[in-house]
């Protein structure tokens, strides 16, 4: 089932590690001369839907992972306390082979791919991330999905001694998410275990996190320890916090505003102080691939 979707750009088009390091050094040099502000607008003119990956630094220092704190820098500051080995994922509910699946075993059985995806946060910023991972469908098939299963529930690790954010009741812990089974089985839906060909850093959801590129970032649950197949729609963390603001589907949609801010535009991270906003694309630019999943649904009601 792997390789069911091919990037618009191939792996060769992704900025190699050495090249973006050079770009950063040039930018740092300009900044040192006080020219950073002048150089930045040129970098900010990326068109909507552009797929030039963000730098390693951008991807790994600007994170929402409230288990480590609510500041964007908190995950990078505190996530090194997290033990990711040994790690196992419990797959249970309506599956033929329920149980705890060891991370190493999963890695042996899955076909790894690179997927360069846009990531759109509900807070109206975005990035492009070159993920490494495998299709979630392959993992679900490993456990054997039973007839009658309609939804997939996910759960993040809940280990307060290593995750300082869990000591504050910012959300109800553990963090939980959910997808409809057809969304989970879609070729675009992956479990990511790496970025830029390197092991995924803890702050990005090590050792294994969901990536659903046509939905707002919070749907892509990090550091997953449990996957449950069910026949009822599972609760999701942000929806439980405010169902008016965060729907179960949470598809990226420029026409349906968040009650407190507009979703029509987004700011691509990395454009500096004078970065221009760009229009947000329907389904985050994956309309062709996923629109059929929602045929006949009122996307404002089922936001």
């Amino acid at each position: 089932m792997a390789h069911r979707w091919i990037n618009d750009l191939t792996a060769e088009d992704a900025t190699p590690f050495s090249a973006y390091m050079n770009r950063r050094q040039i930018m740092a040099g300009l900044a040192g001369l006080g020219l950073g502000a002048i150089a930045a607008p040129a970098a900010a003119l990326a068109p909507a839907g552009d797929l030039t990956p963000n730098s390693w630094e951008e991807i790994t220092t600007y994170n929402n992972f409230y288990e480590f704190g609510t500041d964007k820098g908190d995950p990078a500051r505190y996530a090194d306390q997290l033990t990711t080995s040994p790690w196992s994922v419990t797959i249970d509910g309506m599956v033929d082979r329920p149980g705890a699946y060891d991370f190493a075993t999963i890695m042996d059985r899955m076909t790894m791919e690179e997927r360069i995806y846009r990531l759109r946060c509900v807070e109206a910023w975005s990035m492009v991330v070159p993920w490494n991972g495998f299709e979630l469908a392959d993992l679900l098939n490993l456990a054997g999905v039973q007839d009658g299963a309609r939804f997939v529930a996910f759960e993040t690790l809940n280990r307060p001694e290593e995750m300082p954010g869990l000591r504050s009741p910012i959300l109800q812990w553990p963090y939980v998410e959910g997808l409809r089974l057809d969304e989970a089985m879609h070729p675009l839906t992956i479990m990511a275990t790496g970025i830029y060909g390197k092991t995924i850093p803890n702050q990005n959801g090590a050792p294994m996190r969901l990536v659903v590129p046509w939905k707002y970032g919070y749907k892509s649950i990090k550091s997953v320890v449990r996957i449950t197949l069910t026949d009822t729609q599972p609760p999701t963390s942000w929806n439980r916090y405010s169902s008016r603001e965060y729907g179960f589907y949470s598809n990226v949609n420029p026409n349906v505003d968040h009650p407190r801010w507009s979703q029509a535009q987004e700011r691509r991270i990395g454009g500096g102080l004078f970065s221009r906003k760009q229009p947000t694309l329907m389904f985050n630019g994956y309309e062709e691939e996923v629109a059929a999943l929602y045929d006949g649904m009122d996307l404002a009601e089922y936001h």
Binding site: A28, A31, G32, G34, G36, A37, A40, E57, E58, T61, Y62, K72, G73, W125, R267, I269, G270, G272, L273, S275
Partner: peptide, 18 residues
């Protein structure tokens, strides 16, 4: 703050940070 924002001292998203 403005100088920091222009030179990376406020992180990768300086507008919101500022």
């Amino acid at each position: 703050l403005l100088y920091m924002g222009a030179t990376g001292g406020l992180g990768v998203e300086p507008i919101t940070a500022l």
